[in-house]
């Protein structure tokens, strides 16, 4: 990343930043991948969306299958396909048990950015059943062809 520079802003800077916040809120960019993934998992896998407030980093979305079990859905909108699109984080690779546990813990922590009452319920359930027992699927969409593939991780 380029050097991050600090500056005392003037009115023009502030006006530009306000415009950006008004347009995007707390999301810097709309995620097409997540929209496609939502369509794929509801239509193809018949999953039901769970009440979940996605933080900037963390699970993309949370669903339940026909048996009422939690399913974590990671949406990838990249050229590189499949599992290679999963990123390394400071708490293991996306989709790993360690990564799931860390995110579930943050979702239950009222001080965390990942917390909301709905997220806390999901986090508690993940920790109760054990992150290794929670299903996780990756919905990979090719930005060129817009074709989507579903990959089961667990």
């Amino acid at each position: 990343m380029s050097q991050c520079c600090g500056k005392i802003p003037d009115d023009d800077d502030a006006a530009h930043i306000r415009k950006s916040i008004e347009a995007h809120g707390n999301k810097l960019q709309g995620d097409i991948g997540e929209q496609v993934a939502a369509q794929v998992v509801t239509e193809r896998l018949h999953l039901i969306a769970e009440n979940y407030d996605p933080p900037n980093k963390g699970f993309d979305s949370v669903y339940r299958d026909g048996a009422g079990k939690l399913v974590i859905v990671e949406a990838k909108f990249t050229k590189t396909g499949g599992l290679s699109a999963l990123k390394e984080t400071n708490h293991g690779k996306q989709g790993s048990v360690e990564w799931m546990r860390h995110n579930a813990e943050l979702m239950c922590d009222p001080y965390s950015d990942h917390y909301s009452p709905d997220n806390a319920k999901i986090g508690e359930e993940i920790l109760r059943v054990g992150p290794e027992n929670v299903h996780i699927v990756v919905v990979h969409t090719d930005p060129g062809t817009l074709e989507s593939k579903v990959i089961n991780i667990r």
Partner: peptide
């Protein structure tokens, strides 16, 4: 009081 903004290119951090 001093206001600061920290950016990399056009991304505000």
């Amino acid at each position: 009081w001093r206001p600061y903004r920290w950016c990399s290119r056009d991304i505000v951090f």
